[in-house]
């Protein structure tokens, strides 16, 4: 909750800060600082989005919005367009048709510097050309705020991000000396240190162990609770079900289903989308939906049939933890 407060006080003291601004990056017009978005307010949206890469329509008619205070998970098979949608929401690529709006304005209407105050993006793989120490890498996340009143937060934001991702222990080590999972968490720390109202995370859990997967999604939830809008690409449907407020299932460049996990995680839909029979059943204690591929007698290519109808003898699994 403290972070929301910070967001709200920020735009107040911009005038004196502007004097230092041209030194960092000369701009034609003064940067517009982000206005706070009330919980539930639309932070970013894509409307009728169509993206053609090469000759293939990677996204076709995608409409999706993300609100302040929610975690939206993008799931779907490989090549469904998840990362492309995320890139479009990040204003990385210009849509062939349709529009992306961030903070109530068309994404193309912002300068790079202004966008950096509004959204932070975690790329799928973290790379670094030179062996900067971890703390330095995380501090890079504060670069967009240079010259604004919120540079005061720099040290606190970096320390908090390091702590939240459990990377403070190797803050002094060079990035290149870290393992894949550690790098991924440092990259996330950099994104968190940016303290933007919109977080776009592309597979933040891909390289992580069980503990850190939970940790990362817990951080997402925390950020959402503090008023941020979080969009996260996930492969693990169980993680999505447990931590997301809404899930959008992408399939062949379209949104096959979107809504709260309980509605979206439907065995029939998922079996079709993933071309693999899956079963969905409630967690015995929490009731959260668990998604597992049907294993055993069925081949992977068998036509998708709603599992619960066909497999009544599958009950032992329901009691498994």
């Amino acid at each position: 909750m403290t972070r929301t407060a910070v967001t709200r006080t920020a735009p107040a003291r911009t005038a004196p800060a502007r004097a230092v601004l041209p030194r960092i990056a000369p701009r034609r017009r003064p940067r517009e600082l982000p206005a706070p978005v009330p919980p539930g307010g639309l932070v970013a949206e894509a409307a009728g989005l169509r993206v053609v890469l090469g000759r293939r329509a990677v996204l076709d008619g995608v409409t999706v919005g993300v609100r302040a205070g929610e975690v939206l998970a993008l799931v779907g098979p490989n090549g469904a367009g998840k990362s492309t949608l995320l890139a479009a929401l990040a204003a990385d690529l210009a849509p062939t048709a349709g529009e992306v709006r961030i903070g109530g304005r068309a994404a193309s209407g912002w300068t790079a510097g202004e966008l950096a105050l509004r959204r932070a993006v975690l790329p799928q793989s973290a790379e670094l050309s030179f062996p900067f120490p971890v703390a330095e890498v995380v501090r890079m996340g504060r670069a967009p705020w240079a010259g604004t009143a919120r540079t005061d937060e720099d040290a606190a934001a970096v320390a908090e991000a390091l702590a939240a991702t459990e990377t403070a222990g190797f803050a002094g080590r060079p990035f290149s000396a870290l393992s894949g999972g550690e790098r991924a968490r440092v990259a996330l720390a950099r994104v968190l240190a940016q303290r933007t109202g919109l977080l776009l995370l592309d597979e933040p859990t891909a390289a992580l162990d069980l503990r850190h997967q939970e940790l990362v999604l817990h951080v997402c939830r925390e950020r959402a609770a503090a008023g941020a809008a979080v969009v996260v690409v996930l492969h693990d449907l169980g993680l999505a079900a447990a931590h997301a407020d809404r899930i959008a299932v992408l399939h062949g460049g379209r949104i096959a289903a979107a809504g709260p996990p309980a509605e979206v995680l439907d065995a029939e839909v998922l079996s079709e989308v993933y071309r693999r029979p899956v079963e969905v059943f409630p967690h015995p204690r929490t009731g959260a939906p668990l998604v597992l591929p049907v294993r055993g007698s069925l081949g992977p290519r068998e036509p998708a049939v709603p599992t619960r109808d066909r497999n009544p003898d599958n009950s032992p699994r329901l009691t498994a933890p």
């Binding site: 309980a262 959260a288 939906p289």
Partner: peptide, 12 residues
């Protein structure tokens, strides 16, 4: 379908 206590509310 499954019983879910979590709804889509932002404060969930």
């Amino acid at each position: 379908m499954t019983a879910l206590q979590k709804t889509g509310g932002p404060t969930a």
